[in-house]
Design a binder for these strands. Sequence first.
RNA 1: GGCCCGAUGGCGAAGUAGUAACGCAGCGGUCUGCAAAACCGCGAUGCAGGGGUGCAAAUCCCCUUCGGGCCU
Length: 325
Amino acid sequence: MNKVLFVVGPTASGKTSLALDLAPKINGVILNADSRQVYKGLDIISGKDIPDKAEFVKTENPTKNKKYNVGYYKFNSTPVYLLDLVTPTYEFNVYDYLDITIPTIDKVIGLDKIPIVVGGTGFYIKALLDGIATVNIPQDKKLRKRFEGLQIEELQKIIKKKDPEKFLKMNESDFQNKRRLIRAIEIAQYVKKVGKREGKIAKLENMSVLIIGLTATREIINERIDERVEKRITQGALDEAKKLFDNYKNLSEQVKTGGGYRDLFEYLKGNIALEEAVEKWKVTEHHIAKKQIVWFQKDKRIKWFDITENKFEIKVKKIIDKWLK
RNA sequence: GGCCCGAUGGCGAAGUAGUAACGCAGCGGUCUGCAAAACCGCGAUGCAGGGGUGCAAAUCCCCUUCGGGCCU
């Protein structure tokens, strides 16, 4: 059976370096699963860590979307796909991710290599693994605009009326979430118009999957984050932010809200001092790590490894070898 | 030495007598097209310390301590 390896975990847990270490040993190719690293120009702050002289090698676009910049960077000898896929003004989302990633995985397998999906965006990874029933229901910009101005209570009433089933299924948190309420209405509206709810669910099928999770205590992760932030500042994070800031009004929401980006943008807007922005960046990254930990901890398929344990890589390699046989 | 102001959870900050708002951080979560997003939940039995007045005090009075300012 075809095999796909995943390496997941919070930011700063060392996913990329583990994957780069593993790839040559198992004839693997890396596929990014990070919602901000798909953007061109988000390099240092997003932690892309592309080697200095690496060149982007374009490959054939397997999708209908001409906006994707498809190809890979070579990290030493290992190709890394799904970086620099779109420009910072593009509103990338999980639909796009499935759209490009599924055929890319097929392609890698066709080359007789093992895809290694590496990243911290749990939602994208879950979508790949389990599919999203409503992923083919497109966004309705007009509808979104129309409902954006409404109060939560009004949106709640609407969904209660349009899709009572969904209404009953929503929990307290989602029920207060404007964004999710609007999407629910969007789906209800679409179903009413088109008559059916879900199309074919896009996801990986008939694959043998192994998911490696990297972890450590929150304290350790936070320390590593702080160090990384400091390092990125010296690597030119501010220049990167400035470059993007020049085009601020056209940036996608995803870029504007990215960890580090939003904090440095606040500085560039003149709202806070640079030092404060850096401190905020660290806190933002702590939040991100926390969220990732919470997300991944409930997925029972993940095999966890503590990165502070001596030679944990050897254990990882062992379990992979067993899985490959 | 004298006078004035201040002291509230890790930080910031409301509250001038009726039983401790709120923001940040922290912690616990939700998650099916923005997911590094959006959203939900939980934290002071105590208001610098001590004494007093009151049915009742973070709120009034006295003393002490520590900050800040002003005066000689």
